[in-house]
């Protein structure tokens, strides 16, 4: 028996909207730790890791570990039927091939339930080692989204270079080149606008712009994004959800052939 109650359906809606275009089908794993997902995109270039911690839920009952295969597009369709301030309850019986999403309006005068078919998904779990990254940048999530979108219109790849002064995003395309430098800056009005650099060594890596743009669909989840880079490692683009957990995107770099 699984029963998870979350007061803000809006959060789950944002989570689904941020990954449904990158990953078609995925297993949601439910354990005492929380409600989590790990999945790669179809080309195995990017990996999504989501954790919604059990203590972030209003009610969390998961009798034993369970893995539920869902089509994320279909799950997003069902969640779109909830209002952001509805309470959502995710329910599944042991051995059932369906999951139920129940939405309750804040005044309790509208209660809806949507039953979705589960699917068998063969997916391998990858071991992601805890790593010390050579460079970590924390910056405004909306600024990062703007940069990825802007550079994506000029070129297919983005070079991200971190020095102790700041982070540089560069691209090159048929029509020309573009460079954006964000200097470290903590003297800001709103703390989410700060750009913080923690760097052991300068790092410069190249990535496909379309994946970075896809990751920024998670922008509504957090004010700041954390970008972690090391040579010969995938970049990690992380959106932390206050009290609930995180959405992490890993992207393999491009290298000179």
């Amino acid at each position: 028996m699984l029963e998870l109650r979350l007061t803000q359906a809006g959060l789950l809606k944002k989570v689904l909207e941020s990954i449904k275009d990158l990953v078609t089908d995925a297993n949601f794993d439910c354990s005492a730790t929380g409600f989590s997902l790990q999945a790669m995109d179809s080309s195995h270039v990017a990996l999504v890791a989501l954790l919604l911690r059990s203590d972030g839920f209003e009610h969390y009952r998961c009798d034993h570990n369970i893995s539920m295969g869902m089509n994320l597009g279909n799950m997003a369709k069902m969640l779109r039927c909830a209002s952001d301030d509805d309470t959502v309850t995710i329910k599944a019986d042991d051995g059932s091939d369906t999951v139920t999403f129940m939405f309750e309006s804040p005044s309790q005068d509208k209660i809806s339930d949507y039953e979705m078919k589960l699917m068998d998904i063969d997916s391998e779990h990858l071991g992601i080692p805890e790593a010390e990254y050579q460079a970590i940048v924390r910056m405004s999530a909306s600024e990062f989204a703007r940069i990825c979108k802007d550079l994506g219109t000029i070129g297919d790849t983005v070079i991200i270079s971190v020095t102790k002064e700041g982070v540089q995003f560069s691209t090159k395309g048929d029509i020309g080149t573009a460079n954006i430098i964000c200097r470290k800056n903590t003297a800001v009005d709103k703390k989410e606008e700060a750009t913080v650099i923690e760097m052991a060594e300068p790092v410069s890596l190249t990535f496909a712009s379309r994946y970075l743009i896809a990751f920024t669909k998670a922008t509504p989840l957090a004010g700041q994004v954390t970008i972690s880079m090391s040579y010969d490692m995938p970049i990690v683009v992380e959106y932390k959800m206050e009290t609930m957990g995180y959405m992490r995107f890993y992207l393999a770099p491009k290298i000179e052939e």
Partner: peptide, 14 residues
């Protein structure tokens, strides 16, 4: 020329 790497190059199956 740039070559796109894949995730399995970095992370092994559990």
């Amino acid at each position: 020329k740039l070559k796109q790497q894949v995730i399995s190059r970095f992370f092994a199956p559990k």
